[in-house]
């Protein structure tokens, strides 16, 4: 796909939004779009132009089971044993290390009623360029979590890091806890944390590489680059 000519990029963006760019060409265009902001801008402009057409379609209420299905997919883990072994391997590789960072985190969490739980996430070697590690501190009540890189991680501009709680093997798929800053501490919002995090709900924490905004599917789509077991 030759995008050096701006009018060609513009025409492709138009056909993409109109819906006539199909098959392999559509996939290639989407891949290019994620790497070329000017292409993304062209798509957004075309969406602003054409999508008001969709307002003419009379709304149609979906049955209640659709919402139930969304809730189930997002918030109720259903057993998916197929993903277990890869996760198990990833976090079994991790072991405890490091003093200073752990202490700093312990201080951050000192106001929590029970002693914090510290997890060290080490590089899994799943992708080059991800050296170092992360350290995560979970408030003893399981209601707060702070994670920070041991040293800033250099991220490609179109990739982000996402933190996952990995349940014990066989008890469900990983659950997203949110996106992580690569260059400093991230404090995760308390309503993103599963209430069972410290009560057997998670066996490990893991970090995967994802597209901007995080995994589009609800499970990790990129390589798992850091992982650490949760030892209670």
């Amino acid at each position: 796909m030759d995008l050096r000519k701006p009018e060609r990029a513009e025409a492709l963006a138009a056909e993409y939004v109109a819906g006539t760019l199909r098959g392999g060409a559509r996939r290639r265009f989407e891949a290019l779009r994620s790497r070329h902001p000017e292409l993304d801008d062209a798509v957004r402009r075309w969406e602003q132009r054409l999508l008001p057409l969709a307002e003419a379609v009379p709304p149609e209420e979906p049955p209640l089971r659709v919402w139930r299905g969304i809730e189930r997919r997002l918030w109720l883990a259903t057993p998916q044993p197929a993903t277990g072994s890869r996760w198990l391997r990833a976090w079994q590789a991790a072991a405890g290390v490091l003093g200073v960072a752990v202490l700093a985190l312990a201080l951050l969490l000192a106001q929590a009623p029970a002693p914090p739980v510290i997890v060290v996430l080490q590089g899994t070697g799943a992708a080059a360029d991800f050296s170092g590690g992360f350290v995560a501190g979970i408030g003893g009540d399981g209601r707060s979590l702070v994670a920070r890189p041991l040293q800033p991680v250099a991220m490609p501009t179109d990739r982000v890091l996402e933190l996952w709680a990995v349940p014990p093997e066989g008890s469900g798929p990983p659950r997203s806890l949110g996106l992580l800053r690569a260059d400093g501490p991230t404090v995760l919002s308390r309503d993103r944390l599963p209430p069972t995090l410290l009560r057997g709900g998670a066996a490990a924490l893991a970090v995967s590489v994802e597209p901007p905004g995080g995994s589009p599917t609800g499970t990790p789509t990129g390589p798992v680059v850091y992982a650490g077991a949760l030892r209670l």
Binding site: Q48, L51, G69, L179, P212, G213, P216, T217, G218
Partner: peptide, 29 residues
């Protein structure tokens, strides 16, 4: 279509942080 609608909202939940009100109308997005 029902299955797709579920996938759409699962995607919306996970990428809501990527919505930029300065660049798109919410309904368009």
């Amino acid at each position: 279509a029902e299955e797709l609608l579920q996938e759409v909202y699962v995607t919306v939940w996970h990428s809501a942080g990527g919505f930029d009100a300065a660049r798109s109308q919410p309904l368009t997005w």
